[in-house]
Design a protein around this nucleic acid. Sequence first.
DNA 1: GAGGCTTTACTTGTATACATTATCGCTTGA
DNA 2: TCAAGCGATAATGTATACAAGTAAAGCCTC
Lengths: 244, 244
Amino acid sequence: MTEAALRPQSLSEPIEDTAVTRSLSVTDRIRTAVLSGEFEPGTRLHEVRLSERLGVSRTPIRSALQSLASEGMLDYTPNRGYSVRRFSTSEIVDAYEIRAVMEALAARFAAERGLPEAERAAIERVLAEGDVILANAELGEDERLAYSAVNATFHEAIHSAARCRMLGDMIRVCHSVPHSSHRNVISFEHMDVRRRHDDHHRIYDAILACDAYRAEMLMREHVASVKTSLVRALSGRPLSRRGR
Amino acid sequence: MTEAALRPQSLSEPIEDTAVTRSLSVTDRIRTAVLSGEFEPGTRLHEVRLSERLGVSRTPIRSALQSLASEGMLDYTPNRGYSVRRFSTSEIVDAYEIRAVMEALAARFAAERGLPEAERAAIERVLAEGDVILANAELGEDERLAYSAVNATFHEAIHSAARCRMLGDMIRVCHSVPHSSHRNVISFEHMDVRRRHDDHHRIYDAILACDAYRAEMLMREHVASVKTSLVRALSGRPLSRRGR
DNA sequence: GAGGCTTTACTTGTATACATTATCGCTTGA
DNA sequence: TCAAGCGATAATGTATACAAGTAAAGCCTC
């Protein structure tokens, strides 16, 4: 994969044709733009304006918007077009709950089906890396970012070990919800991170021991606890004025 | 809603323009055709052929195929097109497992959030209808179809009572898997149907009592037990030669 | 005859023109 | 003054022509 494919392009630059089709590269760029908050929730995405900004015709734009709407990131109304989906606080919280049961099921599948060698190695590596990072008394910005990557890799390895395409697809959809991604450990306290890293160790042990029930239960609590932290953090400063 | 919108059109008839857009009506018709088994799994869906059969241009066809692929019903390869997704036996079984945790979460949300009046009435109605149908010692074809509708309405009422769009979307995706729809109670034994109807009563009681844990647990077992019946029924005659 | 290259038919990807629908301001009448 | 209706404008929906990619047949070479 080329470097250009890894680095998302700004919406202002013209398209670089590294992806297989224009539709796919446009999809990635609009997705990145929405996730990074470049468009306010509720903003309408006009096909012609986007096509002018990206230097492609409306055809790949329409295709991209349709994809992103089916990922749950945009709203669509026939004959009216697409707009950036607005997530209420309760929807964000619900997304954690959904993610919790899905990831718990993935952990259970992994325990039932056995951990493939590649995933076992990946998990052991990131568990060790996490141990090193958390040996520090305090976490700087670099350490937090590094741990965020470690966390993401741990979870992805388990999704992959579940060997279930539909489950993987659904978990991916959960990540189009703002504040609901694996990379959001950054925002919480040091003790929370320690505890979650310990969860990772236990989940790995349960999967290795083929203890499906324990793996599922631990993973569910692991993800759901992030929801609790989020609710606690939000209680002072509401995230959305439209929350229920 | 007009009658024409309710009755799916055959793929041979030309489009009747009752839906909002051609793309949407084409999507419904291809979805129905695939679910009814009109196309073998693995069959490629050529854009021009479909557009000739349906009497529309390639544009709405492409849009429809993209939608159905994102629902998980078709496979897509860039520059190669769409084909009917082939589900292995294990994928079908996994889909029940996924549906079980999702519907269980829906039941829990319904219990936590309280049953709106409309859903409460709908559930009581179908519970009573089910009681009447199952009063017969034996079930004829008509009774089975009637109970199938009752079953579907019960589950849909709970999805709606969960008041969570993302959850509803995901449960809908589960129904694009063959043999994984609410309407499949037909294929099982009378005693199984009785037991499942009793489950419905208990789930309703738990939700009314705001017993979130019990509602979730009962619903999970309720859906997962269908998986067990399916596996048992399949053990003699394998459904797919590609099952794991 | 086997393997690889070239060509050709066919399919999908993209651009663009046209059709249809929604929106919003204006006019007109009560 | 307000409401309803009309029309202009601008957006999305659809059709179609062309570009680009894929796959399979045929040819050539070894």
